[in-house]
């Protein structure tokens, strides 16, 4: 839980001054520092970025009445705007999960 929170807050801070790929960094660091098992590392990394990106996308989505989300859905031939949110959140959570797992496994290798 704490792992997810660290990852989410760090990802948000990094995104303020680094490009989009900065979202790969916190999982690698905190997975290495705080990861307890492969499964839980993946899960908390997954949840951490999912939560962050869900909050951020909903903030923009609600902020402009979903107008732009609907247009982007149209651009990708998707039937509804919430699918764009879903795809974005899944994309972020996969990044969070896999990077955190990688960080954890890295620590396992070097501490061994």
């Amino acid at each position: 839980m704490l792992l997810a929170l660290f990852i989410a807050v760090t990802a948000w801070l990094l995104s303020l001054f680094l490009p989009w790929w900065s979202v790969f960094i916190p999982g690698l660091i905190f997975g290495g520092l705080l990861g307890r098992s492969g499964g839980s590392s993946f899960l908390w990394g997954f949840v951490g970025i999912a939560a962050l990106w869900l909050i951020q996308t909903l903030f923009f989505h609600i902020g402009n009445d979903g107008v732009l989300t609907a247009r982007i859905a149209d651009l990708f031939s998707l039937p509804a705007g919430w699918l764009v949110i879903l795809i974005t959140v899944i994309m972020g959570s996969l990044i969070g999960g896999i990077t955190t797992l990688t960080g954890y496994l890295f620590r396992k290798v070097i501490t061994n």
């Binding site: 995104s15 989009w20 923009f60 902020g63 402009n64 732009l68 982007i72 972020g92």
Partner: peptide, 17 residues
């Protein structure tokens, strides 16, 4: 590329308002 386009901090979301 989907990463730059879809990430909420600097992707299309940030152009919404």
């Amino acid at each position: 590329p989907l990463g730059p386009l879809l990430n909420p901090a600097s992707g299309f979301w940030a152009s919404a308002n």
